[in-house]
């Protein structure tokens, strides 16, 4: 049985004569991280903002925990936590004030623990405009989750962050998921989506062009799986064979590298070949195409879908 916390059916958004979002549909299940991916102008932010209740809809249906955000946005106040793509805080608001301010409107006690957890304890009296980009993002995330919402919407949460800050935020997102919180994540960062998201939808020109888990998406593309092998006597280098589904073969240092459309068939044949020639396998690596490669394949004009 579906346990969808967010349901979007044929959502449509038009700006003048430009159709920004064209009949898109997706669901976010309870306790999952759902990635909304797409290039600039794909319609990600318009979709998120409609779900947040700050942008109107021009068609279709949206439900967030049984509430239509385009009709009753006020009812979502304590049910969702939102980190906007833009700053969203007055420049002279101090970190501690921001926590007090928003928690009071959510009618919860200020979460000083989150400020400490996200490394902002020493910045509690620093004004927002004096924080670094990473600190601003961390503050925004702490404000988004301070009232323990069951759904958190994050719009490019790690854009412009250093490695440590990204890792910390990723850890926090995974922790939230483990607590049953659903996260709707819009990002340009494919590695981030591949690492964190349970399922993703790829938007292009306002339409969903691919949907599924990162593993499903990378498996369905035409990108080739890379198979790297190294054997004791280098039989694959000295006496190269022909293997099913392999479209390209390279030699790199002591490795033979194959690009295969059907990695299972190719690996099986390669292993048989090694055994037949009485060689011994030292190393075997099978690398699936990344989500980024699949994304580029889908979103690049002329790419196969």
């Amino acid at each position: 049985m579906s346990d969808a916390i967010v349901t979007v059916n044929n959502f449509r958004k038009v700006y003048g004569e430009v159709v920004a979002v064209n009949d898109i549909s997706f669901e976010v299940q309870r306790g999952e991280i759902f990635g909304l991916l797409g290039p600039n102008g794909a319609g990600k932010t318009s979709t998120l903002e409609a779900l947040e209740g700050i942008r109107s809809s021009d068609g279709g249906e949206m439900m967030v925990m049984g509430i239509d955000p385009t009709r009753e946005p006020g009812k979502l106040k304590n049910k969702i936590g939102i980190q906007l793509q833009t700053s969203g805080l007055p420049g002279n608001m101090k970190v501690g004030e921001a926590m007090d301010f928003f928690c009071a409107y959510h009618q919860v006690s200020p979460r000083k623990d989150l400020i400490k957890r996200l490394g902002l304890a020493e910045k509690v009296n620093t004004q927002y405009e004096q924080l670094s980009t990473g600190q601003q993002r961390r503050l925004a995330l702490s404000l988004a989750v301070a009232h323990n919402p069951p759904l958190v919407i994050l719009d490019e949460p790690t854009a412009g962050l250093d490695v440590n800050s990204r890792t910390e935020l990723h850890g926090m997102m995974e922790e939230l998921r483990s607590q049953g919180v659903s996260i709707l994540l819009a990002t340009h960062d494919m590695a981030e989506a591949e690492k964190l998201a349970d399922r993703v939808a790829i938007l292009l020109h306002g339409s969903v062009v691919a949907k599924g888990s990162p593993r499903e998406l990378t498996a369905t593309g035409s990108s080739l799986t890379k198979i790297s092998t190294r054997t004791e006597n280098s039989i694959l280098v000295k006496k190269p064979g022909r293997f099913p589904a392999v479209t390209q073969q390279l030699f790199k240092e002591e490795y033979s590298v194959f690009y295969s459309k059907d990695p299972a068939a190719s690996v099986s044949a390669i292993l048989n070949y090694i055994e037949k020639h009485k060689d011994r396998l030292i190393d075997l690596r099978v690398e699936r195409p990344s989500l980024e490669e699949r994304f580029l394949e889908i979103t690049t004009p002329g790419g196969k879908k």
Binding site: K77, T86, S87, G88, F102, H106, L143
Partner: peptide, 14 residues
């Protein structure tokens, strides 16, 4: 504040 999106942030936080 409105042009910087602060009011939007205020709105979603009630």
């Amino acid at each position: 504040l409105r042009e910087a999106g602060v009011f939007r942030s205020y709105k979603i936080n009630g």
